[in-house]
């Protein structure tokens, strides 16, 4: 790419838009790249913690990508991983402190899982694969894209598990009392840990049925 072309490339050129769009579907970090499931599933019993978790991860991925991208030429290769871990850990501590200060009740529900963002494979994966080799702006978009790809899965899980498992959304009752009187009952299985795994399996199934190029050979 010549210098002139580079300058003409707008902030939201097709190439950049792809950085956001692809992680939402064909490069989804959870269902395709299999990254970052660890900290995801345990907090999806309800929509609110799932949403806060998704937001935290997106912020951390985007900022870590930018920081590492800015530092990419100065980082001594031998201590590369430690530098990345330090940046990520520092950002996660900041997020944790902010959550404790402003949304105390949610931070209690998230408990140790905020800390586990540090070892969320999405982070190290994106830092190594993208931020180390790209400029800050695309790195930022890549972070946002992957964060959002992670978020929608988390929020979808939280939505289904809370709605059908507890009859509420964001803590407000959605399924009216009259349903329960007519014999409807919450699906208790959905709020137990195994349901999260089965739901992710189902999402993958649906996604791959629609996009056959993702099917594994075995």
């Amino acid at each position: 790419m010549s210098k002139q072309q580079k300058e003409r490339e707008s902030l939201f050129s097709p190439r950049y838009r792809k950085l956001i769009r692809n992680p939402l579907s064909i490069e989804n970090p959870i269902t395709v790249q299999v990254l970052g499931i660890c900290s995801a599933l345990a907090v999806t019993t309800k929509l609110k913690p799932a949403f806060v978790m998704a937001l935290s991860v997106t912020v951390v991925v985007a900022l870590a990508n930018v920081v590492i991208s800015l530092l990419r030429n100065g980082i001594p290769p031998r201590i590369r991983i430690i530098v990345q871990l330090t940046v990520v850990a520092a950002l996660v501590i900041l997020v944790d402190q902010v959550l404790k200060a402003f949304v105390y009740d949610v931070s209690k529900q998230l408990s140790v899982f905020v800390g586990l963002i540090i070892t969320n494979c999405i982070l190290m994966g994106r830092l190594e694969a993208f931020a180390m080799a790209n400029k800050p702006w695309p790195a930022f978009l890549d972070g946002i894209g992957n964060g959002l790809g992670y978020s929608w899965i988390l929020i979808a899980l939280g939505f289904f598990r809370e709605l059908f498992g507890n009859g509420t959304l964001w803590g407000y009752r959605i399924i009216p009392q009259s349903f329960y009187e007519a014999g409807y009952s919450n699906n208790g299985l959905l709020i137990l840990p195994p349901a999260a795994l089965i739901l992710v399996g189902t999402i993958i199934w649906i996604q791959r049925s629609r996009n056959r190029s993702l099917i594994e050979e075995y």
Partner: peptide, 28 residues
């Protein structure tokens, strides 16, 4: 499971998730 006829889109990752879910139910 390699020798079983699993629907294509479920192969690999998908079935592993569901299997883990079933094992988790057993562990409960």
């Amino acid at each position: 499971i390699r020798y079983s006829a699993i629907p294509g889109p479920l192969r690999g990752l998908g079935i592993s998730f569901i299997l883990t879910g079933l094992m988790a139910i057993a562990f409960m």
